[in-house]
Design a protein around this nucleic acid. Structure first.
Lengths: 223, 223
DNA sequence: TTAGAGTTTTATCAAACAGTCAAGATTTCG
DNA sequence: CGAAATCTTGACTGTTTGATAAAACTCTAA
């Protein structure tokens, strides 16, 4: 009999290899065109196999998509999970921002996959967001609130703070096409991310209001 | 003969009405599913007319899309255009942020349409970005630089500053599904945007580092 | 080495899809 | 009014798409 992915059964070498190939190709397609815009044909082609063969491993388009999401969500939430009560608040936040920016740099397709899904109303992962994302954010919001109460960071709505970290960092993955048009070709991808990191540090730590309220040349912060 | 939309010719009442209906329905569809995910059938259905009738006004799917983009881009760039050298830098920036946030609140479909397009690599509007967006951003970046030289705002890369304003404000339109999961049903859309406005003002003006470097309760800024 | 589990392919299907065509219905305007 | 211009529709075409069936092939473990 067939050993479908759904059953709890040892996977063959070929199975593991092919599921890997399929999920990678699917990430490419889904992140570039969204669920509806992606086609099984293209995923199969990109994975280097025939469509019926692909459908042998995942019976339906949606199954591929769900397997992808399930595999990626944990990785995606990891940086926030690492936000810890142990360290000092400001350095902790800085390092969370850095980790998120690194993820945008290293996993842009994953970022776009989630962006596409949320953009379209999250119809396929709303439940996951409620059970996985919401509790984690609630927990970390509580942590942020305790830092605010202790006067370690400015008092703001911690959930909006988290939104702003997500949006500013993921922007460099999700809106890369636009970023490239505006920044031009000078300075490669690494340079762009260095600049972004430097800017975001200034923004999140000090904002735009100059320290010396007079009219002199302001100091430029270093990393 | 037919008076197609492409020709320079006076438009009939019916033509104007129907093009309007079509573009509105198309905005709904394209913003929710992206270019490939949207279908002419659904646009026609949503516009309340038959598919051949819709295709009488716009011969191809891409024509609808391009007409939409052309109609919206100007509106979309308006807030940035209004960023002016006349006013004081910090209030000017504050009001730019507020205008962008208002657009996210009032035109979420437009925001998602652009987000979808950029997310998918901007294949259909890259040229427009280069000819319309880039020069505008360059001009405003120069303005921001002059403010920085004068010590009126902190010295940062002005283009990254603009990115962060775009991303944080548009986040509330583009990622609304996620925002709603996290903020919960309490506080309607207006409340959410008020909270966001308050938070973003603090972030962009002062950042998170508390003013009093000691350990006391920090002041909460008011609007 | 060989039987059977596991994998791949060819052929196929029905639905969805973008787009066409010509005929019929309606509006506009002299 | 009435004819020309404009608008609308049903029927249709060729293609793409998600999905299935079954035969043919390959691998693996006893």
């Amino acid at each position: 009999m067939k050993a479908r992915a759904t059953e709890t059964q040892r996977k063959t070498r070929i199975q593991m290899e092919n599921e890997e190939k399929i999920l990678d190709a699917a990430l490419e397609e889904f992140s570039a065109h969204g669920f509806r815009g992606a086609t099984i044909d293209r995923i199969a082609e990109h994975a280097g196999m025939s469509k019926p063969n692909l459908l042998y491993y995942f019976r339906r388009k949606q199954d591929i998509y769900e397997a992808l999401i399930a595999r990626l969500l944990d990785t995606w939430l990891e940086p926030l999970r690492e936000l810890d009560a142990i360290g000092d608040p400001l350095p902790e936040l800085q390092s969370y921002i850095r980790r998120k920016l690194e993820m945008a740099r290293d996993f842009p397709r994953e970022s776009r996959l989630f962006a596409n899904e949320i953009l379209q109303g999250a119809p396929r992962i709303k439940r996951l967001l409620e059970t996985e994302l919401k509790p984690l954010v609630d927990e970390k919001a509580e942590l942020l609130r305790s830092w605010m109460k202790a006067g370690k960071i400015n008092a703001v709505d911690p959930r909006h703070l988290i939104f702003s970290i997500w949006s500013t960092t993921q922007h460099y993955a999700d809106f890369d096409a636009q970023v490239q048009v505006i920044l031009g070709p000078d300075r490669g991808a690494e340079g762009r991310f260095e600049d972004a990191a430097r800017y975001l540090e200034t923004l999140f730590l000090d904002g735009l209001r100059p320290k010396a309220s007079g009219g002199e040349t302001p100091r430029i912060r270093n990393l």
